[in-house]
Design a protein around this nucleic acid. Sequence first.
DNA 1: TCGCAAAGTTGAATCGATTCATTAGCACGT
DNA 2: ACGTGCTAATGAATCGATTCAACTTTGCGA
Lengths: 332, 332
Amino acid sequence: MVSIKDVADQAQVAVGTVSNVLNNPDRVAEKTRERVLSVISELGFVRNDAARQLRAGLSRTIGLIVLDVSNPFFSSLARAAEDRAAESDSTVLLGDSGHDADRESRYLDVFEQQRVKGVLISPVGNVDAKLEQLRAHGVPVVLVDRVDPQRRVSSVSVDDVAGGYMAVKHMLSRGRRRIAFVGASTDIQQVADRLAGARQAVAEYPDAQLEVVESAAMTVLAGRAAGELLAERGRQGLPDGIFCANDLLAIGVMQAVLLIRGLRIPEDLALIGYDDIDFAQSAVVPLSTVRRPTELMGRTAVELLLEAIDRTAPESRQVIFQPELVSRGSTL
Amino acid sequence: MVSIKDVADQAQVAVGTVSNVLNNPDRVAEKTRERVLSVISELGFVRNDAARQLRAGLSRTIGLIVLDVSNPFFSSLARAAEDRAAESDSTVLLGDSGHDADRESRYLDVFEQQRVKGVLISPVGNVDAKLEQLRAHGVPVVLVDRVDPQRRVSSVSVDDVAGGYMAVKHMLSRGRRRIAFVGASTDIQQVADRLAGARQAVAEYPDAQLEVVESAAMTVLAGRAAGELLAERGRQGLPDGIFCANDLLAIGVMQAVLLIRGLRIPEDLALIGYDDIDFAQSAVVPLSTVRRPTELMGRTAVELLLEAIDRTAPESRQVIFQPELVSRGSTL
DNA sequence: TCGCAAAGTTGAATCGATTCATTAGCACGT
DNA sequence: ACGTGCTAATGAATCGATTCAACTTTGCGA
C-alpha cells in the first residue's frame, strides 16, 4: 500500500510537502507541486482517511439514520442531504433502521466509533439516552421529521396541522360539506396533527361536518377496507369529500369506491391524500395530495448540523416547513 | 475525548491490558477485566475506529452502491446485506448513485479513502477503470444485478430469461394462447432477457402466438398508454394474456383495461408483471408477478465478498439466482 | 524449598497523515 | 558586505489503538 512517505521519497521532497500539496496547494511552488502530483498518480496513491482523521481529530462524515429508505420521503431527503453535504465536502453515511430500535442503536454505535461530525436521525424508539451520550461527547444531533419536546436538539419537521387544514379547506372551498377523515390511530403524532388541521378547517364552515374513520393501518389494503365500509352505506350516507392521512390509504379508498360501488371521483366524491408518492399522479384518477418539501428538508437538516458543528455555543433551532397542496383530478 | 490511555490510568493498568479487555477478553483475569469495564462505562469511553483501523490496516466496513435506494429491490437487498455483514461484524456503508455516474464515482473515491474491505456495486456507467483501480489496490468487488462479460469480478444476478419463461408459461398452461409482451426498449438487458424467456415459452406451444408492444418507459403511465392502445382494438383483436416487463407497467395496463373498457381480469384477460413490488398485491385485482430473491442476493453478495477478502487467490464466481413465480388473482 | 510452566501484565514500537517550529534560499536596499 | 523580509521546504512530534517481546506473578509437583 502506497503511503505519503513513498510519494515523498519518489518525488524527492519531505512528507510535509506532500501533505501541503494535498491540503494547502498554494504554499507549494508550482514546479514542486506538479512533480508531486505526477508521482501521486504514477504510484496510484490514495489518502488514508483513518490516519488523517486520527491526527485531525474530526472526520468529514455525517451520519444519517432514516426509518425506511424505501419510503420516497426519506430517500429523497437522503439524496438532498448527501448533495448538500458534498458541497461542504462531507460525506453522508446512510443507515436504514427499518423501524427497528436495535438496528438504530447499532448504527449510532458505529457512527460514534467512526467519530462522525454529526448525526441526522429520524428516531424509532427511545433514543434519548443515546442522543444524550452523543451530545455529551460533543457530537451535534439534528432530528428529522420529529421535534424534541424539550427543544434541546435542533430539528426539521413539517407542519402537519397546516397540511391537514389545507387539504380539507381545499375540498370545502369546492363546495364539499360532508367530510370524512381516514387514518390510523391518533397515537401517531402525524395522524393526530393532520386530523387537528382537518378539524380547524371544518370549524370555519358552520354547515360542514367531519366524520373520523379509524383504519387498521396506513396501507392500501386498510384504505380499501375503509372505503368498502363507507360505500356500503349507499349514496345517501356517504361523505362527499374524503381526506386520507396518507396516499396509500387514499388509493385503497379509491379502488373500493370506483370498482366496488361504481361511484365516480370527483363527481360523487372528492378525495385527497398526503405525501405525494409516485403513485398519486399515476392513479386511475390522479390523486390530489399534500406534499412535504423533502429536498429542502434534507438540505436544511445538513445546514443546521453544520451550523451546530461550527458554533461553539450549541443553541438549538426548530425549523418547521409548510407543506404544499397538489391539486389533481380527484378534487376537481 | 476519552482515550484508552485515560482508561488505563484510571483503572491502574497498562494500555495493552485495556486493549486486551476489548479484543481478547479471555487473556485478562476476571477481576481486572471487570475493573476495566467499569472504568470504561464510567468514563464513557468509545473506541476510536480511525486509530484501530490505522494500526490494524483494514477496516470493518463494506461499501455498497445501489442505483436507487427508493427502489424496493435495492432497499431490501441492502437491508439483507447489512444484516449479513453484521453477523460477521462488519458494517455496510450505503451509497445511492441515483443513476448518476458522478455520484457513483464520488462514492468509490470515498470508499477507497476509507479503506473499505470490499465493494458491492450495481454500476451505472462505465466503472471498469475505477473497479480496476480498486482491484489493483487489493479491494475486492462484487457486482450486483449485473454480470461482468469478462468474468473477472464476481457477481450476483437473476436469470431474467427464466423469469420471462415462467411468467408466460404460467399463462399458457392456463389455456391462454394470444400473448402480448409489454416492455420498454430491448436495449435494456433485463427487458431483452425477459422477452427472450417469453419467446422460449411460446415456442413450446404451436398454437400460441406472441405480440411485442414497446412502451415508452417502464412506468404506470406508459403502461396505461399501452393498455389503451390494446383495448382500442375491441374484444376480438385483444390478446388473452399480457406479460409486462415490470409491475408498474402491469398496473398501468390493468387501470386501462378495467376502467376504460370494462373488461374483466382475469376472465377476459390474464395479466402478469415482474418484481413483486408492494403495490402488486394491493392492486384492485391482485397482480401475479415474478419475484427476485432479494434477501438471498444481498446475503450472497456479502458472502462472495467476504470469501474474496479471506482468500488470497481471488478467483471470481458468478452466482445466478432463479426467480420465483407469484400467482395471484390476475392469472387465476 | 526449589524449579518451571502457565497465566497475567507491561509498555515501547507501530500504522500514515498533519502540524508547526525551524531552517534554507533568495532578492533587495543600504 | 550585511541585514531584512519573504517564500519554500523540512522533519520530528503527534493522534489513539494494537501488537508482541519481555517481564512478573502464581500454582504445583518433586
